[in-house]
Design a protein around this nucleic acid. Structure first.
Lengths: 343, 343
DNA sequence: CTGTTAGCGCTTTCAT
DNA sequence: ATGAAAGCGCTAACAG
């Protein structure tokens, strides 16, 4: 089953072909097709007609070579973001990136960092070979060696979820501090005084921020911070369950737990139900992310909504602006609280 | 907040720079660095050293122009696959594609079809401009005008989830027929005789196959096919709930329902629980996909596992093989049944 | 208005 | 074993 392809060589029409058929020089074809003003109306019409007939498509490669711009953006995603716990977030951001970039005539090239590492190429080398005009970085950790390469590099970049700001490096992230505040305030307004916190892996910058947000929010609500109320998970479903179990056994009077991700919250919810622990009767649960499924678990998960698609769009527009001469900026997107059945 | 970027122009080292510093011709540099045999050992060493010192990275753009191969694969994803119900599937395939492609030195470029449409460019034109070496197509529908362009086009392509086979177009998909058989057999082995089916939108080829698989499996089990036992959903959580409700009210003696996607099955599960319908006591449920969350709903969802990551890898390898002269092929991956708590 | 001339950075005959 | 020259497809001065 199958057909022979063999050494098929596609030979697209070139600008030269168009020039010859139209009886003009390649320069004129270039000008006519790129909308320059200094071309005779008749000539332009003729060139366009011929180009159409010959089905001419200018080579992005040749153009890139001479223009020294590839109209191409690299997307660096660390393994962290492409695992099971990360893809709800990653995919949405990706869509936003792609849409906004495409609107500006840029192509998005996938390039996870492990690949670059395997080839023993540094971040910058990898991008230089491909002549990316800019880069979007996702899932990088603060202690990652890449961090320096990214911020130091003259290659314009926008990092998602870490506040790295330098001459050529901007960032986009959710206001995690405020997100935590929304969660804790909601819980305290429901009367909770003993609120646990299950965090993601601590290498992630968002985890640090959310822990900080949790502490700050407690203080604002006049509640004491208690280290034994914090469990360090890893964003996975399993660690959510483990976190709730650990917290509950260490703190019998716990009445609510805030999770740094919906996936963990859902894991905890499921574990609680298996144990016969009522949610929200015995313990209330709040997640973070508002992934699609949080709406469909039973009861529905109360959570902090992150504008993922919008983060992608913002990052893309920010990068495009930098490529056009704007300054690198840090942009922080506001979270919202979505109240459902677990609180 | 932010720093001025201005008109930063990165000027990477070129082969010429290396040649000059090393005191040889560019030809020699090219040969030395690309591992040709006809280069003096000493010269090669020297060239490599200089290249290293100057941090030389060959321009993929220039190389593409002269080699007439960009080592670049376009990824066309229809809107259908990038919506909420599609991304569990899409992202995993994406990872497989990327990993396998990267291993072979190819870059993956995103290009959803809506973008191409917006620019009024046909599929082929879009790819021609970018000089893709090949294309992976996801989420296309049988009645999509793109179908002809893809199969007819001399541009090597691999389609995911539709059996399109032509000289330059291969495909990769799960054996849906067998997947359905696994589901139905499992259900009948548990004693079910009245088994409903909630399908995805019928424009999708997988939906047709799954409906066919459902019918075939019933027949194999000696069960009659009953049109009123089939509900046409759209892969979404909501339509799953609606499907179960409709099927149940139309068929009081229904004891099991097979869903064409986990998302629909989960929607149904949740609805059933809200209605006080016991799963699997009153009705058994089987899904399709084995998305991560099907393991974490309560009870765990029995489902048909699709090897999503492997589909990506297979599609990528298949395409790479075509680019090296192999024939276009159709590859069908085997599904597995994962038995959990809903049956 | 239009053509001529020069490259962009690299690979590849063809000589030497 | 190495270099000179040509050319991939396109844009951009610079003339006319």
């Amino acid at each position: 089953m199958g057909f022979q392809v063999g050494e098929v060589i596609l030979i697209p029409t070139t600008i030269k072909d168009v020039a010859e058929v139209a009886g003009v020089s390649v320069t004129t074809v270039s000008r006519a097709l790129n909308g320059y003003s200094d071309v005779g109306e008749e000539t332009r019409r003729k060139v366009q007609k011929v180009a159409e007939e010959l089905n001419y498509r200018p080579s992005a490669v040749a153009r890139s070579l001479v223009m020294k711009r590839t109209k191409t953006i690299g997307l660096l995603i660390s393994e962290m973001m492409s695992d099971k716990s990360g893809h709800h977030f990653t995919f949405e951001v990706l869509r936003g990136l792609h849409d906004a970039l495409a609107k500006n005539g840029y192509d998005l090239i996938f390039a996870n960092t492990t690949t670059a590492k395997q080839r023993l190429l540094s971040y910058l080398d990898f991008c230089t070979e491909r002549r990316f005009d800019g880069v979007i970085v996702m899932g990088i950790r603060l202690d990652d060696p890449y961090v320096h390469e990214v911020t130091e590099s003259p290659l314009p970049s926008v990092v998602i979820d870490i506040p790295l700001l330098s001459k050529h490096c901007g960032y986009v992230m959710t206001d995690n501090i405020h997100g935590c505040e929304l969660a804790i305030q909601h819980l305290t307004s429901r009367g909770h005084r003993n609120i646990g916190f299950v965090n993601g892996h601590k290498e992630a910058e968002v985890s640090r921020q959310r822990l900080r947000g949790y502490k700050d929010a407690l203080e604002k609500c006049g509640l004491p911070f208690e280290p034994s109320l914090v469990y360090e998970g890893d964003f996975s479903v399993e660690s959510g369950a483990a976190g709730l179990e650990a917290l509950l056994s260490a703190n019998p009077d716990l009445t609510a737990v805030f999770f740094a991700s919906d996936l963990m919250a859902i894991g905890a919810l499921r574990w609680a139900q298996q144990q016969g622990i009522k949610v929200p009767g015995d313990v209330s649960i709040v997640g973070f992310d508002n992934i699609e499924l949080s709406e469909y678990v039973t009861p529905g998960l109360t959570t902090i909504h992150q504008r993922r698609y919008e983060m992608g769009v913002t990052a893309a527009n920010s990068l495009v602006a930098m490529l056009e001469g704007d300054m690198a900026q840090g942009r922080v997107l506001p979270p919202d609280i979505v109240i459902r059945g677990t609180t």
